[in-house]
Amino acid sequence: MRTTTYESPLRAEQMEQTRLRILEATADVLADEEVNEVTVPLVAVRARVSVRTVYRHFPTKEALFDEFGEWAEEHLRVVLLSYPDTLEGVREMAPALYRMYDERAPLIRALLSKRGQEIRARTRRRRLATFEKAMREVTDGLGPAERRRALGVIYLLVSAPAWQAMREQWDLEGQEAGKAAAWAVRVLTDELRRNPASMKEVGNDDTRR
């Protein structure tokens, strides 16, 4: 006689809620500057579940970190709808991005922690590939060194570390910091359009000193 397994929708929903609570607790622990080491027992305490429950959802600590990284990236992508893959998208993204950083400050602080950056590094290649595609219009004519410098400084302006620096060092809220970042991105990309050689001139100035 063949038996069928019935999965209760309510139980599935409860398990998903528990999984999300564990991931949110992981963000909380990562963002806590007083925590020296992120452990499964500590995450369990913050999530108000047993250690066994954590391991039921995530067999190892590395599995938990992997899932957290994917969850964080997807969570931020949903807020932004999509990562821009055009230059105009990059030029316009800073205000919404910085506002989202403010609204999701605990999660962003978690990703900026030492361990959080290690986790986020696992998805960095995908983000950089999208950004580089968007910037091709103004970087294709540059040499490898100049192109890398241009990409580096503009990417910094649309990243969480820039938001954190402007917030903590200059007391700028996300809206104002986003305006500043957007202005800087426009100025730099306009200059690259107008005079791509300006990036090379910076390097030449350095060598003449």
Rank of each mutant, 00 (worst) to 15 (best):
S50N: 08
G178V: 07
V43P: 04
R2E: 06
R56Q: 14
E88A: 07
E118K: 11
V202W: 11
E103V: 04
R194G: 05
E13P: 01
T5F: 08
M135L: 08
L23N: 11
Q17D: 06
T123N: 14
D32M: 15
V202Q: 05
E173K: 09
E103S: 06
T53W: 14
D28S: 14
Y83C: 01
S50D: 11
L156K: 04
P84T: 07
E33G: 07
F58V: 00
Y155H: 05
P95C: 00
T60E: 04
L23P: 04
V51K: 15
R149N: 12
G69M: 11
L128N: 01
L156V: 01
S198T: 09
E137G: 03
V90N: 02
L76G: 02
A94E: 02
V40M: 15
D206E: 09
A105C: 06
D85C: 00
W163C: 08
T39Q: 03
M100E: 03
G69E: 12
E132M: 13
Q117K: 15
Y6Q: 07
N36K: 13
P9A: 11
D171R: 07
V79S: 09
P161Q: 13
A129T: 07
D85W: 00
Q175W: 12
L151V: 12
V79H: 10
S159E: 14
N36Y: 01
D140A: 13
R99N: 01
L81Y: 02
V138F: 14
E13G: 03
E13A: 14
R46V: 14
Y155D: 12
M135R: 04
L142S: 03
L142P: 01
I108W: 10
V78M: 06
E168H: 05
P84E: 08
R77L: 14
L128Y: 06
D206Y: 15
R122F: 03
R209S: 07
G116E: 05
Q169L: 13
R126P: 00
E137H: 01
I108R: 04
R194N: 14
A31L: 08
R56G: 07
E92D: 13
R194W: 14
A134V: 04
W170L: 15
T39C: 09
R48Q: 13
A181W: 03
T5K: 10
S50M: 10
A105L: 15
T53E: 13
R147I: 11
L192H: 05
G141A: 07
Q169W: 05
I22E: 03
R149W: 06
R149V: 10
D190E: 07
R186K: 12
